[in-house]
């Protein structure tokens, strides 16, 4: 009994390491990043596009827009392809194919982001430059690359929520004479709606947080983009590109970029958690 108590206390301490890491991360990133935002002023930091670290000008608006643009494109592609794969996997694919498809999508999730970026540069960028114009390094290219990268996240979460829909729903609809597809979109996808939405939001979080692949294909220009064929710099690439040589205020400004990213991610994550918890609650009630 006494030994059990000691083990229990030890385990409690270990179990707190995840949350304490989170606290440490938050504290240190904010401690480094917040002062410069306050010094520059929130308005100049977030709403100015002038990023000239040499002159003490730290405006990240263009990067916020860059991140949002790239993420929006990525999520459109990721949602269509990710959900499409999930529907095929759960509703239409024969068993023999599922055992190939599922691991394949897991492999897609395992490929290093630098490899995605590299393929983007050597294959996609020349294609875009040739056929659509512009430098090739662009919002469009990054969206496509990121879309493929977030696809596995969306697929695997969607598969889980679709499979959580009670089988009786589907059998009921089929028994009423609905086609497979009518059943899928009117019954199953409707029931799984909020879970799938949570999957999209988590996919957005992944896209906005991705760094290396975006550096390689987005072009990293500091100007405000005017079309999807223009290059952009994202929040993440700004940090990774300049961290190597930044010092003093400049480095603090990069941490402040991190703070911005952190806040965006936490908002997205909270939304996703709330949605999926609510849908889990609903399912439990039924």
């Amino acid at each position: 009994m006494k030994q059990d108590k000691i083990i229990q206390i030890a385990l409690t301490i270990v179990a707190l390491s995840a949350i304490s890491s989170l606290v440490l991360i938050t504290v240190f990133v904010f401690k480094e990043g917040l002062p410069i935002i306050l010094r520059v002023g929130a308005k100049d930091f977030f709403l100015s596009g002038d990023w000239y670290p040499g002159e003490g000008k730290f405006g990240i608006m263009n990067m916020i827009i860059g991140s949002l643009a790239v993420t929006a494109g990525a999520i459109i592609i990721g949602a269509v392809f990710g959900l499409g794969c999930a529907v095929v996997l759960t509703q239409f694919a024969p068993r023999q194919l599922v055992v190939i498809l599922k691991p394949a999508i897991e492999v897609l999730a395992g490929i290093p982001s630098v490899v995605y970026g590299f393929i983007g540069v050597v294959v996609l960028v020349p294609l875009v430059r040739e056929y659509l114009g512009g430098p090739g390094l662009s919002i469009l290219t990054s969206s496509i690359v990121l879309g493929i990268m977030v696809l596995p996240t969306i697929t695997s979460i969607s598969v889980d929520v679709i499979q959580a829909v009670p089988k009786s729903y589907r059998d009921g609809a089929i028994a009423l004479g609905a086609t497979r597809w009518q059943t899928t979109h009117m019954v199953i996808l409707k029931a799984a709606k909020s879970g799938i939405l949570a999957a999209f939001i988590l996919g957005m979080g992944r896209a906005i947080g991705e760094t290396m692949a975006v550096i390689m294909v987005a072009g990293n220009a500091l100007e405000l983009p005017h079309s999807i064929l223009d290059p952009v710099r994202t929040l993440t690439s700004n940090i990774a590109l300049e961290m190597g040589y930044a010092a003093g205020e400049h480095r603090q400004a990069l941490f402040a970029t991190g703070v911005t990213l952190f806040v965006i991610i936490m908002i997205l994550n909270t939304i996703a958690l709330t949605i999926s918890r609510r849908s889990a609650g609903k399912a439990a009630k039924k």
């Binding site: 989170l22 440490l24 940090i239 941490f255 994550n269």
Partner: peptide
């Protein structure tokens, strides 16, 4: 629920933020 919340948040943090934290800490 606090531990689970911490784990969920940690899972959502992008690697570049881990990099920033690892660098400063």
């Amino acid at each position: 629920s606090i531990i689970r919340f911490g784990t969920d948040c940690l899972a959502a943090i992008p690697s570049i933020i881990f990099g920033l934290f690892g660098f400063v800490f």
